[in-house]
């Protein structure tokens, strides 16, 4: 899984090329829904660090994650996951993410997640803007 550094859009995007260890079933050779869910969770967490209100070093924990699987995608393809943090309020981060076929751009899965942000690691508790 690699971060796309030249991604123009808001939020971040990562690429995950197909691999046999991501397989749903030997017969269909498509990405496993669990693998798509895991990379959406991961990318959703990462994109929070891209938000201007994120305080560097703050820990985060997924509160909930819902994913709709719109279509299947072959393991010969590469998955692109885009995630954007829409807001951070009262230590809760709200994220939207989509997974698409990197070649065709067709949406494969759509996710919605919230994360609880903890106190920044380190000795001094940091107070945010009031």
């Amino acid at each position: 899984m690699v971060l796309e550094e030249n991604d123009p859009g808001p939020g971040i995007s990562v690429l995950l090329p197909g691999h046999p260890r991501l397989a749903n079933d030997e017969s269909d050779q498509v990405f496993h829904t669990g693998a798509i869910l895991a990379i959406i969770d991961n990318t959703a967490g990462w994109c929070i660090r891209d938000h201007p209100d994120y305080v560097e070093g703050t820990s985060m924990a997924t509160l909930d994650l819902r994913v709709d699987f719109l279509r299947r995608i072959s393991l010969t393809q590469t998955l692109r996951v885009r995630a954007e943090c829409e807001a951070i309020n009262d230590n809760v981060a709200f994220v939207r993410a989509t997974a698409e076929d990197a070649e065709s751009g067709l949406v494969v899965a759509a996710g919605l997640a919230t994360f609880m942000l903890g106190t920044p690691s380190g000795l001094e508790p940091k107070i945010g803007p009031v």
Binding site: N24, D25, H32, T33, G34, A35, L37, A38, D41, T62, L63, D64, L65, R66, V67, D68, F69, R72
Partner: peptide, 30 residues
């Protein structure tokens, strides 16, 4: 989340004795 997906799917296969795997439409994890 992946383990919840696999657990739900295999429980369905087990109870309904499904020869072909069911397909996940959506999942909501807390």
């Amino acid at each position: 989340g992946s383990l919840l997906d696999v657990t739900a799917s295999l429980a369905l296969v087990y109870h309904a004795v499904l020869t072909n795997p069911p397909r996940l439409v959506n999942i909501d994890v807390d």
